Amino acid sequence: MTALEGSMGSLPMFTTPNRPLDILAVLPELATYARRATRLHPRRGNPAAEASSVAGPLLWPEDEPWPTCSLPHLVTVRREATAEEQARSPRIRESPAAGLASVNAKFEEIRARFPTDPNVARLASRWYDGQSRIPAVAPERVPAPTIITTQELVPTEHPVPLVPVVQLRTADVPEIPFPEGTDLLQILWCPHLHTTLRGPQQHYYGPAPSIFWRTAARLAHTIAPGPAAGGVGGYVLEQCTVHPEHITEYPDPEDLPEPLQEQIYAWEESLGDESAFDYRNDLSLAPGLKTGGWPYWPETSRSVRCDCGSEMYLLLTLPNGERGADSWNPLEECSQTGEDYNEELDDPTRFSGAREGILIYICHRDPHHEPWIAIE
Results as ranks from 00 to 15, higher is better:
residue 3 A to E: 12
residue 9 G to T: 06
residue 18 N to W: 03
residue 21 L to K: 11
residue 29 E to P: 00
residue 40 L to W: 11
residue 41 H to W: 15
residue 41 H to S: 11
residue 42 P to F: 07
residue 49 A to Q: 01
residue 53 S to G: 13
residue 56 G to E: 13
residue 64 E to W: 04
residue 71 L to D: 08
residue 73 H to M: 13
residue 81 A to D: 07
residue 89 S to N: 13
residue 91 R to Y: 13
residue 98 A to D: 14
residue 101 A to K: 11
residue 105 A to D: 02
residue 110 I to K: 07
residue 111 R to S: 09
residue 118 P to N: 06
residue 123 L to Y: 07
residue 123 L to S: 06
residue 128 Y to T: 10
residue 130 G to D: 12
residue 145 P to W: 11
residue 146 T to P: 00
residue 153 L to F: 04
residue 176 I to T: 14
residue 179 P to D: 08
residue 186 Q to R: 14
residue 188 L to R: 15
residue 202 Q to Y: 07
residue 208 A to Y: 03
residue 209 P to D: 04
residue 219 L to D: 09
residue 224 A to V: 04
residue 225 P to K: 01
residue 227 P to Y: 04
residue 240 C to A: 06
residue 246 H to A: 14
residue 253 P to F: 14
residue 253 P to K: 08
residue 257 P to Y: 14
residue 268 E to G: 07
residue 270 S to W: 08
residue 278 D to R: 05
residue 285 L to P: 00
residue 286 A to D: 00
residue 294 W to I: 11
residue 313 Y to G: 00
residue 313 Y to S: 05
residue 315 L to Y: 05
residue 326 D to W: 06
residue 333 E to P: 00
residue 335 S to Q: 15
residue 338 G to F: 06
residue 351 F to E: 03
residue 351 F to W: 03
residue 352 S to H: 08
residue 355 R to Y: 01
residue 357 G to S: 05
residue 360 I to A: 12
residue 376 E to G: 01
residue 376 E to R: 01
